[in-house]
Design a protein around this nucleic acid. Structure first.
Lengths: 97, 97
DNA sequence: AGAACATATAGACAAATGTCAATATATCTA
DNA sequence: TAGATATATTGACATTTGTCTATATGTTCT
């Protein structure tokens, strides 16, 4: 994982509200959650949610899937695993399990 | 790991220069690196390094050890492991190894 | 005690960032 | 085609944050 993506992910995870949104998407059991549903889980304006979702997509932490007027988001676990692996590598921390 | 510490760590890792400093401390083989040595590895003013070191200490990512006029820093791998474990728990990502 | 060195703090500043209201764009349905 | 709904974009604003210079505090050594 190159520096640019590494930093992008770190930044994406650093804002509490954005992390909440990410967590909502990551733990969703329905195979995709749309923007509107995300909005209902957090107390910020729709424009703000849209902005955070964009950041998460750009960090490749989530994947967007358009279906008509809706946009569904699914977690990209591979990116998280890569990020964690990169942290461990750069900091010479042993894997936790 | 409670919310407050979790966010503190995430923020601490999010700035590129601060991460560089953390990485320098984490990969140090000499059992402690002092502020002055950290300053030599990065291209910012001493005051800025001092500020970043403080943030790392407050996030409990590194531990400071005063010896006379010097201050030695060592990585706190436990915190990183806790942070990674917390990420995996909150995001329901399986351990990487 | 006084000079030299290591680190911390204060205060100022610019850039980045999270937020919102308003509006635009796109899609669906009656 | 019109109206309703879902999401994106624009532009503005306040806050946060990384950075610096200057200075303070604390330590060592002559």
């Amino acid at each position: 994982m190159d520096d640019k993506r590494f930093q992008k992910v770190a930044k994406a995870l650093a804002d509490p509200r954005r992390f909440d949104i990410f967590q909502t998407i990551a733990t969703d059991q329905a195979g995709g959650i749309c923007s509107g549903s995300v909005c209902e889980t957090v107390e910020v304006a729709q424009a703000t949610v849209s902005h955070h979702l964009k950041e998460l997509v750009e960090a490749d932490l989530v994947t967007a899937n358009c279906k008509g007027q809706f946009k569904y988001f699914t977690p990209n676990h591979a990116t998280m695993n890569e990020y964690i692996a990169e942290l461990q590598k750069r900091l010479q921390v042993k894997a936790t399990v």
